[in-house]
Computed example of a mutant assay.
Amino acid sequence: MNTQDIVSAVEAVQAAILANEAHIESLDRAIGDGDHFINVRRGCEAIVAMRPELSQLPPAAAFERIGMKLLSTIGGASGPLIASFFMSMGRELAGIEQPDTREFAQALAAGVEAIKKRGKADVGEKTMLDVLIPTSRLLQRLAAEGADRESLCMKIKQEAEANMLATRDMIATKGRAHFLGERALGHIDPGAKTSQVAVFAVCDMLTEGAAS
C-alpha cells in the first residue's frame, strides 16, 4: 500500500460514510452523544483536502500528518483517539516506502492498540473496538498466511459485519451509552457501524483496484 492507496482509501471511506449518514446518525441519536457523524465527516473532509500535501509523502509521514490534522480538527473525545490511531500507524511504518500486506497489518494493529490504550477499552464494551480489534487480528493472521487480496478482503468484511452486529446485544461500559445500561441493548454501536462502513470501503477500493 503506497500513499496514493492511502488517499484513495480515505476518499472511499468519505463517500461510504456520506452514503450511510442517515443510518449512522440514527444510531448515534439512540445511544450516542449526537455528534459522532459530524466529527467523522469533518475528519474525512480534512484528510481528503490534504491530498496534494499527502501525495508527496511516504506512507509513514502521511499517516503522521493525518493524525496531527485530525487532532486539531475533530472535537470531543474522539479526536485524540483517532489521531493516535494514525500517528501510531505512521510510527510503525517508519522507513518503509511501500508497505506490503504484513507490514500494513502490523501498522494497523499498532493503531488499534493506541485506541485501546488511550480509550481504556477492549472488546465487548460496545465501541468501535468491537470491530477494529477482531478485524485487525484477522488481517494479521491472513497476511501471515499469504492470503490473496480478494480472499483476504472478503473474510475481513465478513468479520467486520459480524462484530458490528454483535454490539446490538452488548451493554455499553464506555461513552454516553454506558449511562443507559440495559436500555442500550438492541442498538448497534454507532462507532462500530462507522468502523464497519470504513472497512468495507477500503476493502472494496482495494479489490476493485486489483480487478481493473
Rank of each mutant, 00 (worst) to 15 (best):
T3A: 13
D5K: 02
D5S: 03
I6F: 15
A9V: 09
L18A: 10
L18E: 13
A22Y: 07
I24C: 08
S26D: 15
S26L: 13
A30S: 14
A30H: 06
D33T: 11
D33A: 10
D35S: 03
D35L: 04
N39L: 05
V40E: 12
R42T: 10
V48E: 12
A49K: 14
M50F: 13
E53G: 09
E53L: 12
P58Y: 05
P58V: 02
P59L: 07
P59T: 03
A62I: 05
F63N: 05
G67W: 08
G67T: 05
M68I: 10
T73W: 06
G75W: 04
A77N: 12
G79W: 03
I82F: 15
R91A: 11
L93W: 10
E97I: 02
P99Q: 12
P99H: 04
R102H: 09
R102T: 14
F104K: 08
F104N: 08
L108E: 05
A109F: 00
A110C: 15
G111N: 10
V112Q: 08
K117S: 15
K117T: 15
K120E: 15
A121T: 03
V123H: 06
G124W: 08
G124T: 08
E125Y: 02
T127V: 08
V131D: 12
P134Q: 06
T135E: 05
T135K: 00
L138K: 08
Q140G: 14
A143Y: 07
A143Q: 06
A143T: 05
R149M: 14
K155M: 09
Q158I: 04
E159D: 11
E159N: 01
A166V: 00
T167H: 05
R168I: 00
R168Q: 15
M170A: 01
T173E: 14
T173A: 06
K174L: 05
R176T: 06
G181H: 02
G181N: 03
R183T: 04
P190A: 01
P190K: 00
G191V: 06
G191R: 04
T194A: 15
V197I: 15
C203R: 03
D204H: 06
D204E: 15
D204C: 03
M205C: 15
M205W: 12
L206P: 08
L206Y: 07
E208Y: 00
G209D: 11
S212N: 12
